[in-house]
Design a protein around this nucleic acid. Structure first.
Lengths: 206, 206
DNA sequence: CTGCGCTGTTACCTCCGGTAACATGGCGGC
DNA sequence: GCCGCCATGTTACCGGAGGTAACAGCGCAG
């Protein structure tokens, strides 16, 4: 967005190398490793990106674009609302499924961020949250509480899908469509619609 | 739980020192700083806790107990289900509101954890998620999909409240009871119940 | 040819988590 | 009394991280 890719071909090459390393070693790959992968040494990386955050930032910006565009498109698909919700969930889960390492880079905030407060959401996810907020505001009539609810829900849904997606990737408890259903059911109030179970007589303690 | 506090008074002192430092400098405080606060040097810390994770783990275990017990109690309060949900949300938000620093330590996983996969949820939160899962399983009739749904929802709700609570603490968009309502409304299917808004004629592009 | 900007290098700094080796002091057993 | 033992504490070090300084080639406009 802010930088024309064509004007900085070296930069692109370095980012490609960083991408490869992170895909192989995870987001905690060292600057040395990235430089080695690019066939150069550290100072060049620092010349191009300032510091590690600069590199990671540039890297995430690249991948964020795709994910964000996909989610945004899904949010405005001309479907019934429930189907649209399922579609968005499916798009997100498919994205993180296809490239887990990149997904981790995008979704898990950088380790030591002394400046920012306790942000549970990485920048990419904050953008998604804002996108959801906007979509709710545009599409759903929530009365006078609309602004507060949509903003709260945007963050909430993002955090919910983040945690659920993480757990799903880790343990693979079910195929993707089922997961989509489970999450959509939660958002659709199935928790409130279900019947009570009778209270247990004796809780089997540990 | 596993260790009697009385048997290890030094350990408790060291944990107190670590607590002070983290309260002052945040969760990224160095081992040197903690040792200095305790009036000793690093190797003693390592003798007592093995490594940094051991220290942080012992520290979190201390504080987790209270939060977990509060949430667990709230989950089994004899109320209507909706009221119970609101009660749990309120208990959690009240807890993180009262001591944000401790809350950050508990809720935000340690920086570089190369061993574990991409856990979005810190240990304390995973315990809460399991508690929610158990409560759903015991209290709500979800048919044959019960196990999958309850486990998914446990994680999802935890992630949702984590992200929402983070954002709420950061920006304070509304008083606590309103936030509780907003979250309970989301869980209660208000997203599905609300009316559609008419599609916008022209989307004001950036 | 000179100066400039970009590419790259080696060698170094600081700080961190973690460890090895050594010193001290109380305390129960012989 | 003396011995060994164990927990306490220390200094000094290692390897690797992020980051920087200083220097070396190279292509190219003037």
């Amino acid at each position: 967005m802010t930088t024309e890719p064509r004007l900085e071909p070296r930069r692109e090459q370095l980012l490609n190398a960083a991408d490869r390393v992170i895909q192989r070693e995870g987001p905690s790959a060292s600057m040395n490793a990235i430089a080695a992968e690019a066939g150069i040494t550290k100072p060049i990386l620092y010349r191009h990106f300032g510091d590690r955050n600069g590199l990671i930032g540039a890297l995430t910006e690249r991948h964020t674009a795709g994910l964000l565009a996909a989610v945004r498109a899904a949010l405005h698909e001309p479907l019934e609302r429930r189907d649209r919700v399922e579609h968005v969930l499916d798009v997100y889960l498919a994205a993180i499924e296809s490239r887990p390492q990149v997904y981790r880079l995008l979704t898990h905030p950088e380790p030591g961020d002394p400046t920012g407060a306790g942000n549970a959401l990485a920048p990419a996810l904050r953008q998604i949250a804002e996108e959801i907020t906007r979509a709710i505001q545009q599409q759903v009539d929530l009365g006078q509480d609309g602004p507060l609810l949509s903003e709260t829900w945007g963050r909430s849904i993002t955090g919910m899908v983040l945690a659920a997606g993480d757990w799903w990737l880790e343990t693979r408890p079910c195929p993707r469509p089922r997961m989509v259903q489970a999450l959509a059911d939660l958002l659709w109030g199935r928790l409130s619609a279900a019947a009570d179970l009778p209270p247990m007589l004796a809780a089997p303690e540990v």
